[in-house]
Design a protein around this nucleic acid. Structure first.
Lengths: 350, 350
DNA sequence: CTGTTAGCGCTTTCAG
DNA sequence: CTGAAAGCGCTAACAG
């Protein structure tokens, strides 16, 4: 191998704006403008410049840009997207809304406690973000305070049962749980359990809804609430159902905090020989793609997850530069999707 | 409400390093050092400074830091984590390895084509990243070239069947597919189909393995390969299986490119009254959490996804500042997990 | 429409 | 161990 042709090492000399400017015979700022505000540069020059940019492989240095303009063009997204399958659709919505803009997205996974969230938010703040999307988990005064004094617009997503510091978009989880529980009652189930994973604002609201409806009928039994503070999964659903039926063989239905749990519960019922929906009704939450495909198909509550993400990003973009507005709250609504797993009246599936 | 006490607006005056320095009665650089290299500042001063930092709520400006030090402390991760459930574990592995360092992660979703990947990689490069984790999808000369000349270490993850530009960690997808196909043969299945979603390097390698094994037995039939270039999902699995059995009712097993497809296939079998594993064997891929919980449980191939992410980040961290090394390749191996869905000899589950 | 000047907030020299 | 000077690469503000 000829030494001179050796592959370049990592840090190759960087092409800067002035390099391009020099090569194109103009000043740096003109190149800068040609790139960011093409209409402010005469067509001829613009073309020349863009050509040189292309040739030299110039790529703007975002750090320098952020420092000079005090605008990082960054949207911080703090959601459990790496932990919870449900948030993937939300993130896609955000991405799709942001794609056409020159904004970029930086994700972070919320930690376990409010303190960790604070740290991560502060870190976002340190980057002069254009906006932040945040999924509240726990109420925490320190967090609330931080959000109040955020240096940029913040949208809290998923739940709208509490007035946000600034903006919120999501659904009312209490109402959703009420609808699900009422549906189970209507199908004739009476000993309705609740299967839950991670305990956060939203699951608490759902518990409230579930409880309120059952108490209204004198059917609430705290022993039927089976919850473990761990991330929802199919395995957990199977486990919780097994635990439920061992302790309370007379339970005849379950409202699950997530479709993963519902699917696990379904599998466990099959394993235990409990016929669904005849002997046992199952209602999930989230309407994941497999809910409609499962056999029997799973009744679930559909949330406009993608739309929530999309709207959140949209609100952020609109709020840019507008100064702080009065709290805004958007309820995108949910939809109960009745399927086989609760269709008791229809008789057994098989 | 007293005007003066009104909530501060978005852009509150930022505390800078020199503000802190002034308040602490030292120079800016000393504060900077106290924060980054505490051991180079006398204990007394250090304490004072950190106290002032805390009090004033100072947070370093990452853009300024990146610009001045030419080190963004950023790790760029280009994986389909928002699209593919399988990558969530990988991302967790990366996060876990990076957590203890002062590096940060920036995610991006690969686009549809190689060109889009190039754009996103270039964008990462523009931020002076400390390293990049990349999931190759398609072979593309432009992409290869870009990776060769990357201004930072790059780890290509998931597949190790090709020599990487620099570093790679993953498994050999061809071998994995061979093992799965051989397993199905051993269980007595003969008309073995392939169900696939997105077509990329890895699925192509799996197809090769599947084909090689069947051809070895004179059992390969291209008509049994059912693939759609769309993201893998439970719904797609059900659809592909239905399509398969309509066209080829004699098919007696399926090797699925992902467990979502396998689960969908299982549901569809149940719907069609095909008993699994007696009438039809199903082998998935990825060993998602539900594979072992399903009823019947799903045979699958387990990949060390978390470890792949962890190791990738680790390699990046070690490679920092080391200059370019000869290509490194780490094969973390896979594991076939036989379960009920292919246990033909054991008879029907129910 | 184009250029000049100044400076973003921090860190790198290089001195003390 | 601490500080002074210089500048990272870019863009805002103002001139022409």
């Amino acid at each position: 191998m000829i030494p001179g042709t050796r592959r370049r090492r990592h840090r190759q000399e960087k092409v800067t704006l002035s390099d391009v400017a020099q090569a194109a015979g103009v000043s740096a700022i003109t190149v800068s403008r040609a790139l960011r505000e093409p209409e402010k540069v005469s067509p001829g020059l613009r073309e020349t410049i863009l050509m040189v940019v292309e040739q030299m492989g110039y790529v703007p240095d975002m750090a320098a840009r952020a420092l000079a303009s005090k605008d990082s063009g960054l949207i911080g997204v703090l959601t459990p997207g790496l932990t919870s399958y449900a948030f993937i659709a939300v993130m896609r919505g955000i991405e799709d809304r942001v794609r056409s803009t020159d904004l970029r997205i930086q994700y972070a996974n919320p930690g376990d406690d409010g303190e960790d969230d604070c740290r991560k938010l502060r870190f976002f703040f340190s980057q002069n973000p254009a906006g932040i999307v945040y999924v509240g988990r726990q109420h925490d005064p320190a967090l609330d305070d931080l959000l109040q004094h955020a240096p940029c617009p913040v949208v809290e997503i998923m739940d709208v049962s509490r007035t946000p510091a600034e903006m919120a978009v999501g659904i009312d989880h209490r109402l959703a749980a009420e609808a699900a529980t009422r549906h189970l009652l209507e199908q004739g189930y009476r000993r309705i359990a609740l299967l839950g994973g991670i305990i956060d604002n939203r699951s608490r609201r759902r518990l409230e809804g579930y409880r309120a409806v059952l108490e209204g009928q004198g059917l609430f039994d705290p022993d039927l609430v089976q919850s473990i503070d761990g991330s929802a999964s199919v395995g957990l659903g199977a486990h919780l159902l097994e635990r439920l039926l061992t302790a309370h063989p007379d339970a005849d239905a379950a409202f699950c905090h997530s479709d993963d749990l519902a699917l696990g519960a379904l599998f466990e019922c099959q394993r235990l020989g409990r016929r669904v929906p005849t002997d046992f009704g199952i209602c999930g939450f989230n309407d994941f793609d497999y809910a409609g495909v499962a056999y029997p198909s799973l009744t679930s509550v559909r949330l406009p997850r993608y739309e929530i993400g999309f709207r959140a990003a949209d609100m952020l973009i609109r709020a840019t530069g507008a100064g702080r507005q009065p709290p805004t709250l958007i309820d995108l609504g949910f939809q109960l999707i009745p399927r086989q797993s609760t269709a008791r009246s229809a008789g057994p599936v098989s």
